[in-house]
Simulated scan of single mutants.
Amino acid sequence: MYKKTILFALVAICSLLTIDGMAQNKDQAAVGQSVDQLKQLMIDPDKSKLEALASDELSYGHSSGKLEDKKAFVDALVSGSSDFKTIDLTEQTITIVDNTAFVRHKLMAETANDGKPGTAKLAVLLVWVKQKGNWKLLARQAVKI
């Protein structure tokens, strides 16, 4: 009887760990899709889609130290003052803690900010928060590499 109780407890614990792991993998995939959507919208901006993807509390930090709120972030992309022609993301990791996701990656890009050709080589930290079932960009900080 004692062995059956221990076996049942072990099976129950393993089942819970598996379910939690599956939920985290599902969230990681959803965050990865949100990162991909952000990348595409940075190349081909759409105001309403950018506004839907970003949290109202967005804090967007550039590698220059410049900080933008949601409105300034969206306006910069839509106006072309921040203009990405290509973006390549590598070495991406996604960590989920409760309703928050931390994404780190390297970003290599061709830019044309205010019409001036350039390149960007950055290490980026993105913070995503799950709000009403959707992953929203809450914060971003980049540093030059």
Rank of each mutant, 00 (worst) to 15 (best):
M1E: 12
Y2E: 11
K4T: 10
A12M: 14
L16R: 05
T18F: 12
T18I: 12
G21V: 00
G21I: 03
D27R: 10
D27P: 06
Q28G: 06
A29Y: 11
G32V: 04
Q33N: 10
Q40M: 08
I43K: 12
D44A: 13
K47A: 01
K49Q: 12
K49I: 00
E51M: 01
A52Q: 04
A52G: 03
L53F: 09
S55E: 04
S55P: 01
D56Y: 07
D56S: 14
E57M: 05
Y60T: 01
Y60M: 02
S64E: 06
S64H: 07
G65V: 05
L67F: 14
A72P: 05
F73R: 02
L77T: 03
G80H: 11
S81G: 10
S81Q: 13
S82T: 04
F84G: 06
K85A: 00
K85S: 01
T86P: 09
D88G: 06
T90G: 02
T93D: 15
I94G: 08
I94F: 06
T95R: 15
T95L: 12
N99M: 11
N99F: 01
V103E: 00
R104L: 13
K106A: 14
L107V: 03
L107Y: 11
A109R: 08
A109P: 09
E110V: 03
A112V: 01
A112R: 13
N113G: 09
G115E: 13
K116Q: 15
G118Y: 06
A120E: 07
K121T: 06
L122D: 14
K130S: 03
Q131D: 03
K132S: 07
K132N: 06
K132V: 02
W135D: 00
L137E: 00
L138E: 09
A139W: 01
Q141S: 01
A142E: 07
V143A: 11
